Computed example of a mutant assay.
Amino acid sequence: MQTPTFPTQAVVLAGGQGSRLRPYTDDRPKPMVEIPGTGTPIIGHQLAWLAEEGVTDVVVSCGHLAEVLQEWLDSAVLPLRVKTVVETEPLGRGGGLKYAAAALPHPDQPWYATNGDIWTRFSLREMAAFHAERDAAATLALARPRIPWGAVETDAFGHITDFIESPPSPYLINAGVYVFSAEFTGLLPDVGDHERTTFPRLARERRLAGFPLPNGAYWRAIDTAKDLTEAAKELSTQVR
């Protein structure tokens, strides 16, 4: 088997309105929200991570308050080359991803993509190798988040036997980080949602792979003010 060629290009989807993060997103897009105590917006952490994983070129897909994000990118000292694209009309998640991918510098090579509200650290190279080994058209990172409520265990008779605070979910979820083959761009809809069209089709063809995040890998989606607080608390105990 040939040694896989690791992607050097990526798309960051940063166009969401972040309505559940208001008032933080009243004057900035969600990826520009800072995790307390870090002094850096979410997208800054993402770009640093991508650079550490060998990415040299990133296309940022902007939408809500795009100019705020563009101004920050223009003024920041970045570890890689960044280009922005802005949809002139709503294209849906799949159409937006295809529009952004058209601006990648190497259309004949594989690429990463990540949602702009994800804060994570794991080896993208390992994920890319996993993707290549399975000859997949697309590979999704899979996370097992903790349930935000306490769980109760019972015996067969109905007696409560234990209480478990915030247990891991029994289900894996889409972690919002991807590896795509070069051909995947052409499989995306021009307008619409690829998770309702392209992904199900690839799953039926056994060309969609799922990469479980390694044990101990940090992952959190920043959707609410509580997520910001929890991320700051967790990151204060992290080395990275």
Rank of each mutant, 00 (worst) to 15 (best):
P148T: 05
P148V: 05
P148I: 09
V152L: 15
V152K: 09
T154F: 10
D155P: 12
A156D: 05
F157M: 11
H159D: 15
I160C: 07
I160A: 06
D162Y: 03
D162E: 12
D162N: 12
F163P: 00
I164T: 14
I164W: 09
E165Q: 10
P167L: 09
P167F: 12
S169Y: 03
L172C: 08
G176D: 11
V177N: 03
V177G: 04
Y178A: 02
V179R: 02
V179F: 04
F180S: 07
S181E: 07
A182I: 05
A182C: 10
F184W: 15
F184R: 02
F184Y: 15
G186V: 10
L188G: 15
L188S: 14
P189I: 12
D190G: 15
V191T: 15
V191E: 13
G192Y: 03
H194W: 07
E195I: 14
E195T: 15
E195K: 08
R196D: 08
T197G: 06
T197N: 08
T197C: 04
T198L: 08
P200S: 06
P200A: 01
R201T: 14
L202N: 00
R204W: 02
R204K: 14
E205R: 15
E205V: 08
R206M: 07
R207I: 01
L208I: 06
L208Y: 09
G210M: 09
G210W: 04
